Amino acid sequence: MQLVVGRIGRAHGIKGEVTVEVRTDDPELRLGPGAVLATDPAGAGPLTIEAGRVHSGRLLLRFAGVKDRTGAEALRNTLLIADVDPEAVPEDPEEYYDHQLMDLDVVTVDGTEIGRITEIAHLPSQDLFIVERPDGSELMIPFVSEIVPEIDLEAQRAVIDPPPGLIDGSQAVVASAREADADETGAETGDDAKGDA
C-alpha cells in the first residue's frame, strides 16, 4: 500500500536541497538516502533521495538529478509517497503508524461517540487527531496519553478522556494550533514532526 510520507517545501540554498514536511514516524527509513519515492503529481517522480540532514529543526533532502535551486523550486508542494507494508507495525507497542489510526471511531471513556479520525496533524509541539463529527464539523484532539488513554485497533476505536472545554472549545484549539504551526515554520508545516506511515 502507498502512503504519503512527506511534502516538499521551498528550496534551501543553491545546490538542490529542499525542506520537507515530514509525515512519517520513521523518517530514517522512509526518507533516508537511497529511498525511492513515488510522487503526486506523478510527473515529478520517482525521486531517489541522495542525501538528507536536519537544519534548524527542519529536514533537508537532496534528490538524485536535482542539482540547483531551479530544480528544487520545481518540486515545491510535491507529495512524497512510499510503498508501505500494511501489516508493518512499529517496534514500540505504544506507537502507531498513521494508517493504523485513520478512520478509527473516537469515543469518550463513558462510551459517548465523538466522531471518526480523518487525519493526523503532525505539529512541532505535538501530534493531533483531526476528528470529523457526525454533523460534519471538525475538532482536534491532542494525541497524548492523558487525553487518549486507549487505542483499540481490534475494536477500531480511540478512547479519549477530554479535559473540560476540549470538545466544546475545539475550534479555538484548531485555529490557534494551525496559526502557531505556520508562525513557527514560516508557512511550511510540521517539518520536524514525528508523523506516521
Rank of each mutant, 00 (worst) to 15 (best):
G169Y: 02
R133I: 08
V106R: 11
R157M: 06
V174L: 12
N77I: 10
D26V: 02
D127C: 13
D25Q: 06
F63Y: 08
A11G: 05
R53Y: 09
E50R: 14
M1L: 02
Q171R: 14
I117G: 11
K194S: 13
D181H: 03
D192M: 15
G16K: 00
E50F: 12
A158L: 00
E150C: 00
Y97M: 04
F143N: 00
V22L: 05
P142K: 01
P149S: 00
V22P: 10
L47M: 04
R116C: 10
V174N: 02
P162S: 14
E95N: 10
V144F: 02
I49T: 08
V54W: 15
I151W: 03
G57A: 08
V173L: 13
V144K: 12
G195K: 04
A197T: 12
F63R: 10
Q171A: 15
P134A: 07
R58H: 02
V174T: 10
D92V: 07
V173Q: 05
T189K: 15
T108R: 04
E132W: 07
G71K: 00
L59E: 10
H122D: 11
I120C: 04
L31G: 03
R157Y: 00
Q100N: 14
V66I: 14
L104K: 03
E179Q: 10
E138A: 04
D191Y: 14
V5E: 12
R10N: 11
D196E: 08
A193D: 09
A64S: 12
D152G: 10
G57D: 06
D181T: 09
P149T: 04
D105F: 02
T112H: 13
D183V: 08
D183A: 14
G52V: 09
R10Y: 08
T48N: 02
G71L: 01
E113C: 01
L61F: 10
T185D: 12
D191I: 13
T70H: 11
G115Q: 09
I160Q: 07
V89S: 15
K15V: 00
